[in-house]
Design a protein around this nucleic acid. Structure first.
Ligand SMILES: [Mg+2]
Length: 656
DNA sequence: AAACAAACAAGA
DNA sequence: TCTTGT
DNA sequence: GTTT
């Protein structure tokens, strides 16, 4: 993996720093001297003029590439490594190549890695494996799961696209939906990648001018990214200090939303005017913060919060898993201020779990590549296959499934191929993996028996710690197992994003539905406000649910809620999602299909149109929905009446 | 001034 | 019930 | 935090 002599760790490496996101400047100042010192070479020309004698052209030292001239330029043949800033968007990178007339094929034999590879190699004084620092620009998943390069010196061949469709489908039709033919499926599904690898949702310079330096006064995708980061930081701070559904908690929710919207904004935000049409999450305060950012490149409020002693302490404490705002408050009041303080006084923590998690703080900060996630998947699958040959369906979910290039944890969803109830499969798989040394700790494991309160079917939750690579960092790993009839809901749930789930469920609520990780059901009766429930000491309102609306696929869940399907890479609360939800409410008519019939058919019309392509006709139930306005007004009236507030009731009635 | 609030699981 | 996590 |  490495050469012994620090002075030769970059031997036979020739680096080219792709001048995007300010890498050029940083490279020249900081990295280049170290690389040279360590036996490497740095080129400042990506292409050379092709005139038969490449070695000579290489000396051609113009520092400006004149793209206007008609000379044929080819890839600089001595370059072995392209170094790309991690923050660069893959699309921007591909456009950059395009402008230099370089095809993906031409760099297939090169290492295309992030600047982290260089800095970490320098730091560790050894040449790290390029595979772990690949800059994933391909339009296909970056690495096959099992083939690890033994040596970093050979460039890997470009990965082939997965043959499987993006969504892990539930392999068998539901028994309840009638005698569909049962396709033969592989015993334990190894497939989990999606074809598109999404880079950081938003990044440097989308709208041309990639090589110009960033400035907060100039619109650019990089500016979007930094604005989103500012909101993300505000959200993190308020989450860290908010102890209850309070002002700060509302701020945390607000900044989470706006951060996700900005980070997925499809073009450079020209001015605040672009954001003003956002409804519900863009008011005066946010507007002022955006203005301030465009003026100064930062936020005083954020700067103040980040320098506040209490805030700093809370954020540090919460690097410990299962330490939140309340626990932080306790520690702070006992005079602790830093993580080191907590490590010196673990007795101030209130559970053994928290004390156990002290040792994970450093590793859990680290992100991992898709390759490592896929390796973990392989290991879990092979154990599952040995214990339950042919019985289980195991898919990767979470941000991996959404296509993120790097992830903080590994999320699995497991379901049985047949309709049997979930039993102790997860426990046994975990035990076996622990025996193998893969699984190293259990943080949470639901009891081996008993039913979830909110579901007909038992489900199992496991949060743990594993080490996918020998000698590598420990990683957070989550596994959920649910009954097959709930597969689509569980998949939607654990694919997220969190903010997307919240928006989906809020939308369901407005449609008079309730969406959970187990089911989608119509709400027949709701009493009082959520705040009212809290005041009167209930954790939530009493609701009566109608029959669950069965969905075999995620697509059907979207359809049932009047929304267009979104593949996992688009599962975030973005600019258009709010508008689409509103549109769905305006339509106010949905068709739901129950597996068994007895349906009323009031309008009759959408019967054939909404049919899915499967052969089994399912009688439709056509339902006029209680839409948001009606629903909310109804609640308002009830509340007003209950409070004996005649005026309020009249107002509400007038609104109707 | 008051309402707004994802929904759930686990564990102490 | 409170707290934390997904 | 925003909205009514
Ligand atoms: Mg995840």
């Amino acid at each position: 993996m490495s050469q012994r002599e620090p002075s030769s760790i970059f031997a036979s490496c020739c680096l080219f720093f792709v001048p995007m996101d300010g890498l050029s400047a940083r490279a020249t100042k900081l990295m280049k001297p170290r690389v040279l010192e360590m036996g490497g070479r740095v080129e400042d020309q990506l292409t050379v003029i092709f005139s038969g004698d490449l070695t000579q052209q290489e000396e051609d030292d113009n520092d400006v590439i004149d793209l206007e001239q008609d000379d044929e330029r080819v890839m600089n043949p001595v370059v072995t490594h392209l170094i790309v800033a991690r923050s660069v968007n893959s699309d921007s990178f591909l456009r950059y190549l395009g402008r230099h007339d370089i095809s993906e094929a031409m760099i297939a034999r090169l290492h295309v890695v992030t600047d982290g590879w260089v800095t970490d190699s320098i730091k560790k004084k050894q040449r790290l494996n390029e595979k772990d620092h690949q800059f994933p620009y391909h339009s296909v998943a970056s690495s096959p799961a099992l083939s690890r390069q033994a040596t970093p010196t050979q460039s890997p061949p470009p990965p082939s696209p997965p043959l499987t469709p993006p969504d892990p489908p539930l392999p068998l039709a539901l028994a309840a939906s009638g005698g569909a033919t049962v396709p033969r499926v592989p015993a334990v599904k190894m497939e989990a990648s999606i074809p598109e690898v999404k880079m950081e949702v938003c990044s440097a310079h989308g709208g041309g001018g990639e090589e110009e330096e960033y400035h907060h006064t100039r619109p650019s995708m990089e500016r979007n990214r930094r604005l989103a980061k500012m909101f993300k930081q505000l959200s993190s701070v308020y989450k860290a200090i908010a102890t209850e559904p309070s002002q700060d908690f509302q701020r945390y929710r607000h900044y989470s939303r706006i951060s996700e919207i900005v980070s997925t904004w499809p073009e450079p935000i020209e001015s605040v005017q672009d954001l003003r049409p956002l409804r519900g999450c863009y008011g005066a305060k946010t507007d002022e913060k955006v203005n301030e950012f465009f003026r100064t490149g930062s936020s005083q409020r954020l700067a103040h919060l980040l320098s506040d002693e209490r805030t700093k302490a809370f954020m540090e404490f919460q690097q410990i898993w299962h330490v939140g705002a309340a626990e932080s408050n306790k520690l702070y009041r006992r005079g602790l201020r830093t993580l080191a303080d907590v490590k010196r006084h673990p007795e101030y923590l209130s559970t053994d779990l928290q004390r156990r998690c002290l040792k994970y703080v450093e590793d859990f900060q680290k992100k991992m590549t898709r390759a490592e996630v896929e390796e973990a998947h392989q290991q879990v699958c092979s154990v599952a296959e040995r214990l339950y040959p042919g019985e289980l369906h195991i898919v990767l979910t979470g941000s991996y499934r959404r296509g993120d290039a790097q992830t903080k944890d590994i999320d699995f969803l497991i379901t049985r191929h047949d309709d049997r109830e979930v039993a102790d499969e997860v426990n046994r798989i975990v035990d076996s993996l622990s025996h193998d040394g893969f699984m190293t700790d259990t943080l949470v494991l639901s009891p081996g028996c008993g039913f979830g309160a909110k579901s007909e079917h038992k489900s199992v939750t496991f949060y743990g710690v594993c080490r996918p690579r020998k000698g590598g960092p420990l990683r957070r790993i989550d596994m959920w197992m649910q009954h097959r009839s709930e597969y689509a809901f569980a998949l939607l749930h654990c694919t997220g994003s969190a903010q997307f789930n919240i928006t989906m469920r809020t939308h369901a609520d407005k449609m008079g539905l309730q969406l959970t990780q187990h089911k989608l059901a119509k709400v027949i009766e709701a009493t009082g406000s959520k705040q009212g429930a809290r005041r009167s000491g209930q954790s939530r309102n009493l609701t009566h649910e109608g029959p669950p609306i069965p969905c075999e696929t995620e697509e059907e869940i979207f359809t049932a809620m009047g929304l267009r399907y979104r593949p996992p890479p688009q599962r975030f609360h973005d600019r258009d999602f709010g508008a689409e939800c509103h549109e769905a409410i305006a339509h106010r008519k949905l068709t739901w299909y129950w597996p068994d019939g007895g349906a009323v058919d009031s309008s009759g019309e959408p019967l054939a149109k909404r049919r899915k392509k499967d052969d089994i006709p399912r009688p439709p139930i056509v339902d006029q929905l209680l839409v948001r306005q009606q629903h909310q007004l109804q609640l308002k009236r009830e509340r007003a009446m209950a409070a004996g507030n005649l005026k309020g009731a009249m107002m509400a009635l007038k609104g109707a």
